[in-house]
């Protein structure tokens, strides 16, 4: 997804792999032997060798079903986990070796883990983070002020974090993560549990950071809206393999090979519903019809050509499937199916 010209690579993975050792419960070790035998373990693969690159300034949705290895990837890229094999660099640093330098240039937001001090007002978290990042106190205060204004945090900063609603807290979390002006923002399911409004607020905050400030965004989410509203590019992993890497439009257009043709008729059509293989037709009213076309079987144009001869069409629209359906299809898909890539 390079936009041409010179592109700085922000994140790069080459064959990055992670396995976990788990007790193998299938092998019983009973009785006293438990105390001195090493419990048998098995290797569980959390991330199969994975390769991709992200350029500086991109905003990437990293998607895949539960257990695909998304959080594991983010944890390796932010220096939390060591990989089992392979290589990765983030802004030129190897995350697990160069954590200190890296952590001054990136920020991480986990929807499920708070990074604010629970019992203290968010303002105190800002003060602590100022010390942790060795920021200039005045500079940090001004930056905090600017972030608060931008994210509408007035009145929230002086209440203990434990008294904030989830939505309020998430806005504070993102503001706190941005205090040291990171160049990359990693977000792991940031909108989880938020209501529609809070979701939209958070999305537009993240979008604006990417568009206006040029912060590279790398986000995981199960929410179609997050992917569409925030990101330009999607990387899809399924059972540890990258099965799609391309623009959001391409994902929508091509991942699910299905178009919906909606027709408004100028006179009611009461005849036999047209039967074609790869097409499911639905009569909404005698004046309105809908056709789901599987474009791997028959091109939408062919279907349309057939319909034009039989129906008197006043208006027509051809739409790609909604993002929800695309994501559902991705998750439902067996690893064997070769998607566009």
């Amino acid at each position: 997804m390079s936009t041409g010209g010179h592109c700085e690579i922000a994140v790069s993975l080459r064959g990055l792999t992670r396995t976990f050792e788990r007790p193998d419960l299938g092998v019983p070790v009973r009785g006293l032997r438990r105390f001195w035998t090493r419990r048998p373990t098995m290797e569980a693969v959390a991330l199969h060798p994975t390769t991709f690159h992200v350029n500086a300034g991109e905003s990437v949705a990293f998607i895949g079903p539960n257990g695909a290895g998304k959080s594991t990837t983010i944890k390796i890229l932010t220096g939390i986990l060591h990989p089992t094999a392979g290589m990765a660099t983030v802004l030129g640093h190897v995350p697990w070796l160069d954590r200190d330098a890296l952590s001054r240039e990136i920020a991480t937001v986990f929807g499920q883990k708070s990074q604010l001090w629970y019992h203290l007002p968010a303002r105190d978290s800002f003060t602590l983070l100022t010390r942790i990042h060795d920021l200039d106190a005045d500079l940090a205060r001004r930056r905090a002020g600017a972030l608060c204004e931008r994210f509408g945090l007035d009145g929230l900063l002086d209440r203990p974090v434990r008294t904030l609603s989830l939505g309020e807290r998430m806005r504070c979390e993102v503001a706190a993560a941005l205090l040291h002006s990171p160049r990359i923002l990693f977000l792991d399911e940031p909108t989880i549990g938020l209501d529609v409004i809070a979701r939209q607020e958070l999305r537009s905050i993240i979008r604006e950071l990417n568009q206006r400030d040029g912060v590279t965004v790398f986000l995981t989410s199960h929410d179609a809206g997050d992917v569409e509203r925030v990101c330009d590019r999607a990387i899809v992993i399924h059972t540890g393999r990258v099965v799609f890497d391309g623009s959001i439009e391409t994902l929508r257009r091509d991942f699910v090979r299905r178009k919906t043709i909606s027709l408004e008729l100028s006179s009611p059509f009461t005849g036999e519903s047209p039967i074609m293989s790869g097409v499911v037709s639905t009569q909404l009213t005698p004046m309105r019809w809908q056709f789901q076309v599987d474009t791997t079987v028959v091109p939408a144009e062919t279907v349309l050509a057939g319909l034009i001869g039989r129906m008197q069409i006043a208006d027509l629209t051809i739409t790609d499937p909604p993002m929800e359906d695309v994501i559902a299809a991705i998750y439902g898909q067996a690893s064997s199916s070769e998607a566009v890539s």
């Binding site: 932010t78 200190d100 001054r104 990074q115």
Partner: peptide, 10 residues
């Protein structure tokens, strides 16, 4: 619970 500390520069 070490994640938080691992992403900060100290």
């Amino acid at each position: 619970e070490l994640d938080f500390y691992l992403v900060l520069p100290k």
